[in-house]
Structures are given as C-alpha cells and as structure tokens.
Amino acid sequence: MADILVVVEHHEGVFKKNTLSVVSAAKALAGLTGGEVDALVLGDGVGAVADVAAGTGVRKVLLGEGAAFSKYLAVTTAGAVAQVVKAKGYGAVFAPASTFGKDFMPRLSGLLDAPLASDIVGLEKAGEALRVKRPMYAGNAIGTVELAGSPLLFTVRQTAFDPAAMGGAKAPVEKVSVTAEAVGTAFVSRQETKSERPELTEARVIVSAGRGIKAQENFKLVEELSDQLNAAIGASRAAVDAGWAPNDWQVGQTGKIVAPELYIALGISGAIQHLAGMKDSKVIVAINKDEEAPIFQVADYGLVADLFKAVPEMIAELKKLKSA
C-alpha cells in the first residue's frame, strides 16, 4: 500500500513524546497494509525536532520550514500537510489526539475530502477493509469503524499505543518546500501554564483534585503530596471551572486522557466525564469522604476519609518510607 505520514507534534522546537505513540500506531497500520512510515516536521528552525524524530524508527523525516510556520496555526499546518500528502501520494496520515491533532486534522480532512477517525485505540484488517476502534459516549462504548477512500486520516489516543523507542539509528532528513496559507488567521499570544512537574500525559503518577479541595490555596496540599511522588497534578472540571486550577489540568472526556501507573483522586466524585479520562490508569486510589461516591467503583484502593486529614498523613507516611 501507499506510504504513511506521521505529523510530529512539537512545542516551540521541543519534540513532544506523544508522537512516539503515533509512530507506533502508524507502524501497526504499516504491518497490516504494507507501506513505509515517514515523519513530517513543520516549523521554523526546528532541525532539532527533526533530529529526534529521525531516531524513532521512521524511514525518513520530511522537514518543512519557514518563518510563517514559527507559530503553530491550524490553517497553515493543515494546508502544508495537504501539500505534502498530494505531492508524495501518502495513503494515510497520523497525528496525536492532542489539542494539536484535534485542531488541524479535521481541517485536513475537509481540505482533502478524506475521512478521519478520531482518537483511535486500535487497528485491524477485515479482508481488504481497514477497521479501527475508537471510544465513544465518554468511553462507555468502543466503536468499530470502517473507513473508505484514500488518504485515510487518524488521530491517535496516546495511552492506547506503547511509545516507539527513541534514539535509534538516524533516518535521513529531507527538506520539503511548503507554502503557508494563513487564511485570515494570525497568532496573537500564548499564556503558558508554568510547571516544573512532569507533563500530565507523560507522568508515571498523577495526583488530581476536585471540588472537595474547596479552595485554590488548598492545592498546596496537592503539591506537597505530588512532590513526594514526583507526580503531575490534574483536576476535575469542577476545580478548573472554579478557577483553582488551569484549564490544561482538566482530566476527562473533554480534557486530557491519561493512564499513569498510579492515579490518586482527591475529593473527586467520579462523574462519567471524569472517569472517561482516567479509568485506564493502572492503579487508582480515591480519597473521598462520601462512601457512596462513584469514584470508588473504579478505585483499587478507596479510602473513605476527609482529605484534609488523610493527605497530610499520607505525606508523612511517604516521608517515613523515604527515610527508612
């Protein structure tokens, strides 16, 4: 079959690891249909990103650079990917189901009149037809979806595919010329959520807090616990809506989908939409004072307690463990 293109996500020249799972998904497709997997890096002065991508096991890296690509925009990105796909005849395009992929991939679908399956968690072949699995209804159903035509487009749920290894033999980097179509759009500004902690989607441990944390200043407690576990911090929608936590901490159906080794939910009731974002975590701990809270139904270790009492105790226990 035709070759497969992975659009690499980076932020201001820093390679994002979600792309590693996308490479794995693209390779899974190549395993079913044949074809080679290439990567595309768009940006300005992003040779370092291309260099990282070159070590992920792809055949080659296409590098499209220009000042007009210095800030990500859906319009320029979708336009450039469309040019590359048409020029090189790719049969499939993959990107992460992050706010990057979710933004430009549907636009690409519209530009190419090509079908897109969002947030896929699996791929299979039935005769000649290609089928993918994707969660729907807040993860309460897994749909089997068939796509027709070429090229086929996919965004990939990062947690569903093991990341491809980094730092392998370097594939060649090939410059491609792409033009930017700004379509009446301009970048204005960005307000970064600053944090020294691991990224939510990459952390081994996540501590999340909900309405039960009651105030922004109480997130200090969450931070102290996270420090002990080298954890990322997450939040429920209620905590974000209240202004206690930044938007990009929201875990759930309409926020980030995470699956760390350990997820600790503090004062979170366990609404369907929250569970959709974390129920594939390996181990789930819930601390909630309401023993009926639905979060306990998915928790491996549920503790019915006041979090303002339990969390300080937990911090003390963890400190003891460390010094032992």
């Binding site: 706010t99 759009t185 301009a186 970048f187 500004s189 960005r190 959520t193």
Partner: peptide, 14 residues
C-alpha cells in the same frame, strides 16, 4: 482565546 495543551492561546481570525 483557545484552551490548548500547555495553557491558553489567542489567535486573530478574520
């Protein structure tokens, strides 16, 4: 202003 991974981003659209 858009809610994106990593924070908030503002773009201008015609």
């Amino acid at each position: 202003t858009r809610e994106v991974d990593g924070g908030l981003e503002t773009i201008e659209v015609a």
